[in-house]
Design a protein around this nucleic acid. Structure first.
Lengths: 209, 209
DNA sequence: TTATTAACCTAACAGGCGTTAGTTAGGCAT
DNA sequence: ATGCCTAACTAACGCCTGTTAGGTTAATAA
């Protein structure tokens, strides 16, 4: 059942980039340069093939960017859900929320070109491509709403905050780090702690009189 | 000194759009559609003139978008500074910070196509255009840093938060509202209160035991 | 050995882009 | 009336874009 023939020859040709290779490169270029300035010829050149060859793997440019967007959400969704469900069953609410924030930020800043590309170019792609990405997005948003609702019900969160709005504020704030955070000058790890501190406790000096 | 000749004939021709008219329309289109999908021909058509005519007012597309970007920062900068300096001299720190947040959010969501266009397209324009906008940006950032530093010195803010990072988090979070907030379904006014509440006091339910 | 298939290449297409040069029409002051 | 100035117009330029059709190569399967 393990190996069938001789050694481990699984790649079809010598140096085939393949669909996944093209997609990886497209995600990286989209993250670095945005949607508008990345042409199929640029992607092809970075992949070491010619522009027309991309149409062997994809039917259109929209199909490429749609695949990148979907993968970007799936990565961060999986990452965030795993981080929360991996916690011991008796974990307190604050710790769970901190874990979710940390997972989102790490996917965005450390791990995945797909997730960062999604955040970066979502507002630049054609409407039809955005629409195609919406179901995947909604699933991730529902994951957050579920977590936040749970924390509100068990008394961890204030009762007077609207969950949907809180989620939009939180994810919006985290995603905005992409515009200025430089992973070489600080860890996403530490940054996530700062964000959690600010969102959970605020920035005001409390006087207990 | 008031009126010189007859009535109020100040416009040169019947229906001249003029430099400012073109700029207004460009800002609106950039805010609505992003940088990449707004061509000079689109701007011209919306302005009721032909594409080539734009070159009477501007030397290049870059010059247009640079003008939009600069104006966008200037509007929000002035708006925020005025909101803070208009307060009575003995105003407490928290109120000042809330006023600054409110002014930024209103410029972004209610008042100015230029400010919203800036936030929307800054990450999409050519590097040279971004660089040209940097000095104006830095001046606005300095205004915030000055306010936040003052609040930290007088004990309003916690001592252990880095001012620069706090400013990046705050403005980033506010700017992110552009992606989801619909002014028809809620006031920027009320939204700014929510943001101030979250940032100042956090979202955690405090128990005083 | 032959046939098949995956993965690529070449060359071209129509259309849109920013940009330029030269021209035209109307208002104003001399 | 003349000549200038402002604000437009027309027509074209070279370039880049996404996309297509048909040909080539090398590895695998029969």
């Amino acid at each position: 059942m393990a190996q069938s023939t001789s050694s481990k020859v699984n790649e079809t040709s010598r140096s085939a980039v393949g669909r996944d290779g093209v997609l990886d490169i497209a995600a990286r270029l989209f993250r670095e340069q945005g949607y508008g300035s990345v042409s199929l010829r640029k992607i092809a050149e970075a992949a070491g093939i010619k522009a027309g060859s991309i149409y062997y793997h994809f039917g259109s440019k929209d199909e490429i960017v749609a695949a990148v967007l979907d993968a970007g959400i799936q990565v961060v969704h999986e990452s965030m859900r795993d981080a929360v469900t991996a916690l011991p069953a008796d974990t307190d609410g604050e710790t769970a929320l901190r874990a979710a924030i940390r997972a989102h930020l790490r996917a965005l800043l450390d791990v995945s070109d797909y997730t960062s590309a999604n955040v970066r170019i979502f507002g630049q792609v054609p409407q039809s491509v955005r629409d195609a990405n919406l179901p995947t997005r909604r699933a991730y948003e529902a994951e957050w709403d579920s977590l936040l609702s749970r924390l509100q019900e068990d008394g961890t969160l204030k009762q007077d905050v609207d969950i949907r709005r809180l989620r939009l504020m939180l994810i919006g704030a985290l995603n905005a780090t992409l515009d200025w955070f430089d992973p070489d000058r600080g860890s996403a790890e530490a940054l996530s702690r700062t964000y959690a501190d600010v969102f959970l406790n605020g920035i005001l000096e409390k006087q207990d009189t």
